[in-house]
Amino acid sequence: MMKTTPSGISEQSGQVVQTGRISPSYPAWIFDDSPIPDPHGKGERAVAFLKALRHPKSTLPGRQFQLDRWQERIIRKVYGDTKPDGTRRIKTVFALIPRGNRKTTLGAALAMLHLGPERIPGSQVVSSAVDRDQARIALEEMKGVIGAHPRTAEAFQIQDTKNRIVHRKSSAFYRAMSADAATAHGRTPVFALVDELHAWKKRDLWDAIKTGLVKTPGSLLVVTTTAGIGHENIAHEMYKYASAVASGAIVDDAFLPVLFEADEDEDWRDEAVWRRVNPGLSCVPPYPDIDGMRQMVREAEHRPADREMFRQLHLNVWLDGAANPEWSLDVWDENAGQLDLTALEGRPAWIGVDLGPETEQTIR
């Protein structure tokens, strides 16, 4: 008997069989029920802690924190796969996840873990984003979780004006930071969540976080982001490294790539592609809203800029060109070939010239 999962992977007699078009870097282990090492029980401890939490928006009985299967598998991998001496094996997680798949909730859960069972007395836990509003999103999620249960409300002190949450007994604290590197240098976080790295214009805060993490044994860096535009940025550097690790071109057991992405030339209108790339569509109820995605695609059929936005944010296709193209490159390509100037006589015309350095040199 064969069953096909929403991710596009089929399971038959305990064997995982890839169906359709699945990239070698696709994280099939998230859906295939393969064993995840947990020699010291730290993966199970992490999952049990999160399931004991409450969330104000949860529809589960008792407002239990909703930890979906794909999220649970990632957490078991990150925290359960330890070295023989019990120390952390995975030091960096790069999670490329499309918009609407609850990355923020997952990131807030990870931060809570480091104020919970992963807590070190006096330790620093940080989340960071490109601006203040984005940085506070994870903080607001954590505030909701803490306030949803009397025990967590008693255990933690929320210092809202300082963007901080403090564990009262151990003085371990969490702080949300925006891209102001002056506030980051000198800090030694044991856990750092970096949100939407593709939107970061500068690398000052990134460098401060990276150098701070190496000061503490057992530290963990988690990057959650959608795809970006262009190749000259920190996010694309990390993405290329993650792709190389996922494909086996680079061997790095301390780096965990989680890449949910469509190939550049795949049909962006194909719902089978959507389901493979958006892990939340495997859940009940599914997310993001697939009817909303269908409407976006209907409109994007006639608006190239919307199409590129959909491919970038909902299919994680890393864009090379403009974010808001005036026309589709398919239309541009259709007009390739020899131009008959005589057929244009008497008609108004416009000409565009690339005056970059190479063109200027040719003109001279």
Rank of each mutant, 00 (worst) to 15 (best):
M2D: 09
G8R: 08
S10L: 08
S13A: 13
V16M: 08
Q18S: 10
I22F: 03
S23F: 01
S23L: 05
P24D: 14
S25Y: 00
P35Y: 11
P37D: 14
V47H: 10
A48R: 07
L53T: 01
R54H: 10
P61N: 02
G62T: 00
F65H: 11
V78P: 03
G80R: 11
D81K: 15
P84E: 10
D85K: 10
T87G: 04
T92P: 00
V93I: 02
R99G: 09
N101S: 10
T105G: 14
M112G: 06
L113F: 09
E118V: 08
R119T: 02
I120S: 09
S127A: 13
K143W: 11
V145G: 03
H149Y: 15
A155I: 09
R164T: 11
K169P: 02
S178P: 15
A181T: 10
A181E: 10
G186A: 14
P189Q: 05
V190I: 12
V194W: 01
E196P: 13
H198S: 12
K202P: 09
D204A: 12
W206R: 06
D207I: 04
A208S: 00
K210E: 04
T211I: 06
S219E: 13
L221Q: 13
V222C: 05
V223F: 07
A227T: 01
H236T: 06
M238E: 15
K240Y: 03
Y241S: 00
A242G: 02
A246K: 04
I250C: 13
P257S: 09
D265H: 15
D267R: 00
A272Y: 00
R276G: 10
R276C: 11
P279Y: 01
G280Q: 06
G280P: 10
V284P: 10
P288R: 10
V297G: 06
A300S: 11
E301T: 01
E301M: 08
H302W: 02
H302S: 05
F310W: 06
Q312F: 05
L313T: 07
L313S: 00
L315Q: 08
L319E: 13
N324S: 13
N335H: 12
E345T: 07
D354V: 01
E360M: 04
